[in-house]
Simulated assay, not measured.
Amino acid sequence: MNTQINSIQIPHTSRTIGSEKALISAEEVSGSLNVVLQFGFPAQFLADELREQIAQATGKTVNLEIRHHIVAHKVQAGISTIQGVKNIVAIASGKGGVGKSTTTANLATAMAKMGARVGVLDADLYGPSQPTMLGVKNIQPTQQDNRLIPVVNADGIQVMSIGFLIDADQAVVWRGPMVSQALQQLLFQSQWDNVDYLFIDLPPGTGDIQLTLSQKIPVTGSVVVTTPQDIALIDARKAVDMFNKVNIPIMGVLENMSVHICTNCGQHEAIFGTDGGKELAAKLGVPLLGQLPLSLPVREAMDAGTASDLHAQHEAVAAIYQQAAFAVALAIADKGRDFSSRFPKIVVE
């Protein structure tokens, strides 16, 4: 029985239940088979498909329980993980206006709907947009023991942003050191609650915030966002080069605005070019996480702060973000585990 279950392929992957060592138990009770699976990534959304495959393989009525046990994975050498946060994913573009913040909000929403505990840190301190996109712009974080408690949105996503702490119309006129210090305060002085994946929405460019990220913040991996346009790809390559220089792995490329679909006639038009993100991913040898159309519902949902409704009402869009989030989760699960928190700090006096 166990051999039959272990040989089953996990949907949307080339992995099997056996290769993931996911089978915890399989017991036949009153003619039904009670199966417990545990993965190192969120897999609850695969429950129906896995239940059907197990039933076909065993010829039994299956009661399936899916668990996940997500752990901290390796980051840059010499940097310890953050209390309350297991894995940090940096979302970068190099260039502004390509949909990086939209990607962050929707990857976080998809990951939360998959069953993970998710956080978002809005590191675009000059133009914070995550409070609006995640529907929490009118909520203020509270304090406990001199630490900020992140705001939690409707999907359970923990959100922290400079946008909570300044007036919406107030310009942030800070020099680099102040910006870097503010980023560290938002991250390290927030009371994150057992976050499996913390997505950091980076500003455009490769400046002070990105340098702080690489030197002082434990980053598990990064996602590069681009449009197919040559100009956007030039800056995306700079972001790639930056991550390579600071030894932060790139887990994939997501291509935004890949095609415009006319709402009146349905005509497809590649306004910004064709397959630029796909070619960049191939050159880097990393997955193409998805190609998203220039979409009116996505723009409307981000302005209204209704990402959750977007995923519920537009299955095609939700599927792309879910596929991308799942690919990120798999890439993290394949990394070596981080055991730094288990070792005591040695002080020589």
Rank of each mutant, 00 (worst) to 15 (best):
Q215A: 04
A43F: 06
I157L: 04
I250W: 00
Q130N: 09
I209G: 12
P11S: 09
P228I: 02
L310Q: 00
E315S: 10
L134C: 03
V36W: 07
D124Y: 11
I79A: 05
T3M: 10
L183W: 04
A281P: 00
L330P: 08
Q83D: 15
L23R: 02
H311T: 05
G207P: 09
Q181D: 14
P131E: 14
G305V: 06
V98S: 05
M111S: 12
V246E: 02
H311S: 03
L165K: 03
E255P: 01
V151Y: 01
P204K: 02
T16I: 08
V240R: 00
L296A: 10
F164C: 03
I166D: 09
D196T: 03
T274K: 14
V75F: 06
A72C: 04
H260M: 13
N194C: 03
L134T: 02
F45M: 11
A72Y: 02
Q291E: 10
I91C: 05
K113M: 13
L148Y: 13
D193P: 06
M1W: 08
V62H: 03
V195M: 07
A333I: 04
I8D: 04
A168G: 11
I10N: 12
M251C: 08
V219N: 03
N6W: 09
G252W: 06
K238P: 11
D241C: 09
G119N: 05
F164G: 01
P128L: 11
V35Q: 04
D193A: 13
K238C: 11
Q184F: 09
V317F: 10
N6M: 11
N63Y: 12
V219A: 07
G96Q: 00
I70D: 00
P42T: 12
L284W: 04
I66T: 06
I157S: 01
D275Q: 09
L183C: 07
D122A: 06
K245I: 07
Y126P: 06
E28L: 06
Q44A: 12
D122N: 06
T81Y: 12
S19D: 13
G252C: 06
G84I: 02
L288M: 08
N247G: 10
V225R: 07
V62D: 03
I231W: 08
I231C: 08
P344A: 09
V152N: 06
Q184R: 13
I320M: 05
D169P: 07
Q215E: 10
G266D: 12
S340K: 04
T13E: 10
G290F: 04
L148I: 09
S129F: 13
T306H: 09
L183N: 05
E27T: 15
Q210D: 07
C265P: 06
V89F: 03
Q140V: 11
V328D: 01
P203C: 06
T104V: 11
A110G: 10
T132S: 14
T102I: 01
F243L: 15
V36K: 10
A325P: 02
K74A: 15
K21L: 15
L187P: 02
Q291D: 02
I79G: 04
L186C: 05
A316P: 04
S180Q: 12
R117N: 13
